[in-house]
Write a protein that binds this DNA or RNA. Structure first.
Length: 594
RNA sequence: GCCGGCGUAGCUCAAUGGUAGAGCAACCGCCUUGUAAGUGGUAGGUUAUGGGUUCGAUUCCCAUCGUCGGCUCCA
């Protein structure tokens, strides 16, 4: 991954994108001579440039700028590099406050153009192309004729804080992209279109899976019967697997007294994300943003022996967190959600086996839902932290050794751990190659201290257990959103809310259809009979749009033979088969989770 | 929270400073059908909410709520 990023930075595509950003800035400056410009790097799928402009941009502006860019590209501008001193640079950019700030930073080895800290003063360079000169380290193309004017596209306008700091001015950011060929651009735009078709918010409506509602409140999800059926199936599988793997289930309340959250430290460090307290009988109660303190109290409810460990307490715990109004996004970022949470308590000598177990278990769980490509991220000890250093190192070693042993591809984020412990996050890749973080496995050196957790060791003395938080699916809401997009709404048979749609051709076939439906239901299949007076074609279209995996057409032939004619949602039609044969086929595919 | 856009029937969308229209869906019929939309009719809206400007606001202005694209945040 790291190598890939470096390779991209060295590539011609990167130079094309970065240079296209400059061309864009040139055309924006032509249109708004007083524009102040900030930074304009190439990014993963394109580029952007931030401007401080006298008025808000409109989509029409974008079209106009894009058109002008093509003209500039075709005028074959050369990109010329020049090294200069900070003093010269300040003179060149005397009317550009953002550039002056960058120069200051570079001069003193503060931050570079990407906002990364640099230790030493960086040599300054200018790149000039056409009428535009920018403070820029490059690299660029030599001439704009290397840019294909048919392979550029401006995508959208958005607000962005100067240097990502919400206390600084809000600038206007134009996102765009560029490719080497028109075909590559078209592929990319196709992928964006495809992603729109799979958008879980759109599919959630079309397939009647879930909704949110003004009156209920933002970020609070209503699961409709279809979505709730899928959730039920996910939960049922999750329950079975947990029970088979040494977990104990617990149920805990949704609110707890303020003293609980003081002990846990959440009131001191997490209150910004917590809902306001509920006062009753002179006590303040808080809605839980996390399940941990409750699980810890289950642990603490009795004296624990080293023989009792490991203890694995699991709960699909619903939590509420205040999220700022602008950050909610469908099911992926909400205010009320259910974590598939568990806390492991173990001895030091069990830690390695426990980490092995939980990583293996996570991977199997994710794979069961069709996510085959999984990438791990290991985050280690940060500067600001609690807990003894040797415990940190022991935990990090256990995590990393497990990743190696299980040959899971991983990246290390040095110093990226939470203040309370190191962690592994797992990201899955979906059908379009997008990454989504689902699982997290985190050590905690904070709460066991705060709640004074202990177990009695072989030596008769109390010892502090190691504690691990983990969520495998993350939250059921987020997981559902990712699942919808991964399958594009065409859920595998075992998860499809409706597995079979029976399609009688004429009214006289309805009775037989109902008989078949009864048989299928008995066999555990989820079935609907479409006995409306619609034409068969319309019924097929409807079932197809609802992405029902099996459509069973029933006409005179089928009634006579006691058979059904299977059409799959792939469009494949099979010759008529007996009802038992269909049940066997469906049950096999359900068992295989196809 | 911030910048910008948007909010009209269940859904997808149209229209206008003089109290709104289509397609699909729904409902009632007719048709009885062989692998992606048969057909006629009926009903459905305080144009998100609250305030303001105006003789008159759904349209213009303000606020609130929701939502979209980003930023920021993501213990």
């Amino acid at each position: 991954m790291m190598e890939e990023k470096q390779a991209y930075k060295d590539s011609q595509l990167y130079r094309i994108r970065h240079s296209t950003a400059h061309i864009m800035a040139e055309s924006v400056l032509e249109k708004f001579p007083d524009a102040k410009f900030a930074i304009g790097p190439a990014i993963e799928d394109g580029f952007y440039y931030d401007f401080d402009l006298p008025r808000a941009l409109t989509p029409d502006d974008l079209a106009e700028i894009e058109k002008r860019m093509r003209g500039l590209i075709q005028s074959h501008e050369t990109f010329e590099r020049k090294e200069i001193s900070p003093e010269e640079a300040k003179e060149v950019f005397k009317d550009q406050p953002y550039k002056l700030e960058l120069i200051e930073g570079l001069e003193h080895g503060g931050l570079d153009e990407d906002g990364n800290p640099t230790d030493e003063p960086v040599p300054l360079s200018l790149y000039s192309s056409g009428a535009f000169t920018d403070l820029c380290a490059g690299p660029h193309v030599e001439n704009s004729k290397e840019i294909n004017p048919q392979a550029i596209k401006l995508l959208n306008i958005a607000g962005a804080y100067w240097r990502g700091d919400e206390k600084r001015p809000m600038l206007q950011r134009i996102y765009g992209t560029a490719f080497e060929s028109k075909a590559d651009l078209d592929d990319y735009l196709w992928k964006i279109e495809e992603a729109k078709k799979r958008d879980h918010r759109k599919l959630g409506k079309e397939l009647d899976l879930f909704s949110t509602n003004d009156e209920v409140g933002a970020g609070l999800v209503l699961w409709h019967p279809n979505g709730a059926m899928i959730r039920h199936l996910v939960e049922r599988y999750w329950d079975d697997e947990h029970l088979a793997n040494g977990y104990d289930f617990v149920y805990t309340p949704h609110i707890g007294k303020s003293s609980l959250w003081e002990t846990s430290g959440h009131l001191q460090t997490y209150s910004e994300n917590m809902y306001a307290p509920i006062e009753i009988e002179g006590q303040a109660y808080y809605i839980k943003p996390m399940n941990c303190p409750f699980h810890i109290h289950v642990y603490k409810s009795g004296l624990r022996s080293y023989r009792d460990l490991p203890i694995r307490l699991a709960e699909k715990g619903t939590v509420y967190r205040y999220e700022r109004s602008g950050v909610m996004h469908g099911l992926l970022r909400v205010r009320g959600f259910t974590q598939d949470d568990a806390h492991h308590f173990c001895r030091e000598d069990q830690m390695s086996a426990e980490v092995d177990f939980v990583l293996d278990f996570s991977m199997k769980m994710l794979q069961a839902f069709g996510f085959k490509k999984i990438q791990a991220y290991l985050s280690t000890m940060p500067e600001k932290r609690v807990g003894e250093e040797d415990r940190w190192h022991a935990a990090e070693a256990a995590l990393e050794e497990t990743l190696k042993r299980m040959q899971v591809p991983y990246e290390v984020d040095q110093g990226g751990g939470a203040f309370y412990g190191p962690k592994i996050d797992l990201k899955v890749q979906d059908a379009l190659g997008r990454e989504w973080q689902l699982s997290t496995i985190q050590f905690d050196f904070n709460l066991p201290e705060r709640f004074d957790l202990s177990y009695i060791g072989e030596d008769g003395q109390p010892h502090r257990p190691y504690m691990v938080h983990r969520a495998l699916l993350g939250s059921l809401e987020r997981f559902f959103g990712v699942l919808i997009e991964h399958y594009g709404g065409a859920f595998p048979v075992w998860l499809a809310p409706r597995q079979v749609e029976l399609i009688p051709i004429a009214e006289r076939h309805n009775d037989f259809a109902w008989q078949v439906a009864a048989q299928l239901k008995k066999a555990g299949l989820r079935v609907k009979v479409n006995d409306s007076s619609d034409r068969m074609n319309a019924k097929i279209r409807d079932a197809q749009n609802q992405k029902v995996p099996y459509m069973l057409v029933i006409g005179d032939r089928e009634v006579e033979e006691g058979a059904v004619a299977l059409r799959r949602r792939s469009g494949e039609s099979l010759p008529a088969m007996g009802v038992d044969a269909f049940i066997a086929l469906a049950q096999k595919e359900v068992a295989e989770r196809l």
